[in-house]
Simulated assay, not measured.
Amino acid sequence: MLTRLPHISINTLTKNIHIGFRKMANVADHYNDPVSIAVIGGTGLQSLPHFTHVATLKPSTPWGTPSSPISILHHPSPSTGKPIPIAFISRHGLHHELAPHEVPARANIAALRHLGVRTIIAFSAVGSLQEEIKPRDFVVPDQIIDRTKGIRPFTFFEGGMVGHVGFADPFDNKVGKIVRQCGHSLEGEGVRLHDKGTIICMEGPQFSTRAESNMYRSWGGSVINMSALPEAKLAKEAEIAYQMICMSTDYDCWHDSGDVTVEMVMGNMKANAENARRFVGAVLDELSKEEHNEVVLAKHLEGEMKFAGGLTAAPGRSAEAKTKLGWLFPGYFD
């Protein structure tokens, strides 16, 4: 599963983050227009066909630099033909040098929001905890159980400014509905979709013990990975509509089909790579339609943190916290 492995990322599989993108002769190092949609790539999403690479950005944030440069891709709107910009970032770095607990998730999410991103489609390979979720099946999860161990920075609100955000529904229902519709439209073409599921997000980088795997099954876990958190929490704080698409690559070690191996995971990912690309491509096609503008811009989340982050009275806010959060949310806490 994606971040259950010593993550073999997009780039390990392809040796080049831009394989599958049509490159312009002169790729820019800046991009001035807002970019509303982003893809966070993980193991198994090797390329995005029919996209034109127009810029490579290397931003910095108050929380450090993102895990990889951000590629800006142009995708034609299916309704108008107008180019729609998509941001693409590789979760584990250009050479898969970042372990799950080393991914600079705050920098990734902050950089995307600063670009204008308000919808994120995140891809993850996962292990299955249930018999009916077979290797190569897709899952659009609706819940998460956090089994990380507190060593990953997981909030923007600290160091002198407190903010609380609801996390009852860790994935965005409006974007999730669109993603599910796209997945079902591909069924019968090698895609088998499970409409919901609970991700167990473990710390890693080691795989589960058999006892842990059986415990997670007893809790109602559907799949297991190492990537969903803190990404989903930070996206929620950043008022970004976030939905993960999972691809099952193996049964976790609870199953009698044998222990999880890197070879097993990679084999299933490679065999199902085209379906993964088509699924993500179909989602981006649909999100590019003008009828989804309000959802893509996450208007239903806009302003949530202005109130939540105002919990700390102005005299109690540290200068550092005000500077950082002012960068993320211009004008919110003036």
Rank of each mutant, 00 (worst) to 15 (best):
V139W: 00
E158Y: 13
Y216H: 08
R317T: 01
S128D: 12
L129K: 12
I70F: 00
D252H: 06
D256W: 05
V283N: 14
F88C: 02
E286S: 07
A28P: 04
A235H: 04
Y242T: 12
G150F: 11
P135T: 09
P100F: 01
S128T: 13
T12I: 02
A55W: 09
M244S: 14
K236G: 04
R147Q: 15
E97S: 08
I40V: 15
E131H: 13
E294A: 15
T119Y: 04
N11R: 01
N32S: 06
E187F: 09
T80S: 15
L287W: 14
C246M: 05
M269S: 14
M215Y: 09
C201I: 03
D195G: 10
P78K: 09
G127Y: 06
D195N: 12
V295H: 12
N268A: 09
H74Q: 10
A241L: 00
E294M: 10
H18F: 06
E320C: 00
V54R: 02
A25D: 15
L325F: 13
P6L: 10
E203M: 07
M266N: 15
I89N: 03
K174D: 11
T119S: 08
H7Y: 05
M244C: 15
L287N: 11
R136L: 08
V35K: 00
P100L: 04
A107L: 13
M244H: 11
I8K: 12
C253V: 14
R277H: 09
R210T: 13
S208Q: 07
G258S: 09
Q143V: 05
V140K: 08
A321E: 14
S60T: 14
T80W: 02
M266I: 14
D334Q: 10
G93Q: 02
F88D: 03
E302R: 15
L48V: 14
P85Q: 02
V139Y: 02
L229R: 04
T56H: 03
A228V: 06
E294Q: 14
I84A: 00
E274W: 08
N32E: 10
N108V: 03
L287K: 11
H292A: 12
I10R: 05
L94R: 03
K270D: 03
H292R: 15
V262P: 06
R91G: 02
I245T: 12
G220H: 00
G258A: 10
N214T: 09
L115E: 07
N225H: 04
F156D: 11
A125T: 11
S318D: 08
P100E: 06
P85I: 00
K233A: 02
I240E: 11
G64H: 10
P83V: 03
S67W: 00
L48Y: 12
G20N: 07
F157Q: 08
R180A: 00
T12V: 02
Y242F: 15
N293I: 11
H255N: 14
R317Q: 07
S60C: 07
A28M: 07
Y332M: 06
A107N: 12
C246H: 01
G160H: 08
